[in-house]
Nucleic acid binder design. Structure first.
Lengths: 209, 209
DNA sequence: TAGATTGTTAATCGATTAACAATC
DNA sequence: TAGATTGTTAATCGATTAACAATC
């Protein structure tokens, strides 16, 4: 049943959610699909269609009640519960993500961090002691960690993913610039901003020198 | 004409390229669409189709010559020339990207960095002095910067984008968690890993407590 | 030659959008 | 009531994949 809802739809839900939370703070009570779409660069039909997969949240002639919709989307995305996550690879990117996550008002929180470098193991970031990789499996189980973030160099990414998968993690966000193989039980999402940057170059005007 | 080639295809080219460069270093001479697809999680038909938009690069019965294909893809993506880029927002993420870019063997290089914080302006990162935002426009023009990276907090992102656009930049990679409006002359790509993380939560198994 | 693999077509699958009756 | 906006259908548009003749 979950499979019948398009991936594209799922990827937009967090974007709707963030916008709604933003305007809720500013005092907005209602938002139409038109409002939401315009603010986020989507077609209003798309907004309505995406939401309609999950229920009739809107009111004809009025739009969507912002706070109700926030609540519903949080439910759909499982963000109505706390979700412990871990992060492996405490390079600069790992540190940046860690710090960013710390100050977010978010139910997904980094609860354990790992690195292979002996010089940083034991030191603290965000009040979390950096642990060695050989404690990864144990810690995932002990802390009920459900999502893993990979920020290690490319050549180690698959190996870390394998440990995570083997430890029963349910989803992985991979920042290493390499394709990671998972299995049918683990959802893997790759973030690849080097590729993003390179694909932008395609759109540059040709210089005629 | 460029418009006839799908966005999805363009987004895959850098991924093909990186893989080919990796196996080239390892001594590979030829690669079939099958090889490439398997390594990267794509269907082999898709690999062939993507490449066929740009020319007949393969040899029937043999596959693609790795080094020739690397050269061709670099040409298609304009990566056969040096492309100066700039980065605005020297928080942890900005610093991480800067450092990463510095040690990449890449024709796209960060040539100027900016921040609004007086305490960091003037200090150096990667042998680049951090400049104030009011020098952004002037510097883009003087250094022929063609792509801008935005790493500022959400509430300032559109403003920075506007300056970039107004200064004649051709593409923007936006890391701020907000939709940025551009125009028909500027290609904008949003990287949104908070949204990525939140959409992963959708796929978690429902706990039945 | 025999086996492998391309480039391309046609079929399929998936996602977006326009349109509108229903109704707040 | 009149105006606005939903939820949903049908149409369109776009992307992927299977299949295969051509040929190295």
């Amino acid at each position: 049943m979950k499979n019948s809802i398009s991936n594209a739809t799922i990827n937009r839900l967090p974007i709707y959610l963030r916008y709604l939370e933003r305007i809720s703070v500013l005092g907005a009570k209602n938002a139409s699909s038109q409002d939401i779409g315009e603010a986020l660069g989507f077609n209003s039909s798309q907004v309505r269609k995406d939401l309609s997969y999950f229920g009739d949240f809107g009111k004809k002639g009025v739009g969507y009640n912002v706070d109700i919709l926030i609540h519903k989307i949080r439910q759909i995305l499982n963000l109505d519960q706390s979700i412990p996550i871990c992060l492996v690879g405490m390079g600069r990117l790992g540190q940046a993500l860690c710090q960013y996550n710390r100050y977010q008002n978010d139910t997904m929180k980094i609860k354990a961090v790992f690195d292979s470098n002996k010089d940083v193991i034991g030191s603290e970031i965000n009040e979390l002691a950096i642990q060695p990789i050989n404690e990864l499996q144990k810690t995932i189980k002990r802390k009920n960690i459900r999502i893993g973030i990979i920020c290690v160099p490319q050549q180690f990414a698959q190996e870390i993913a394998n440990i995570m998968i083997h430890s029963g993690i349910e989803a992985i966000l991979n920042f290493a610039p390499v394709f990671i193989k998972g299995n049918e039980h683990v959802k893997i999402h790759n973030v690849d901003f080097t590729a993003d940057l390179h694909s932008l170059a395609y759109f540059l005007k040709k210089k005629t020198p």
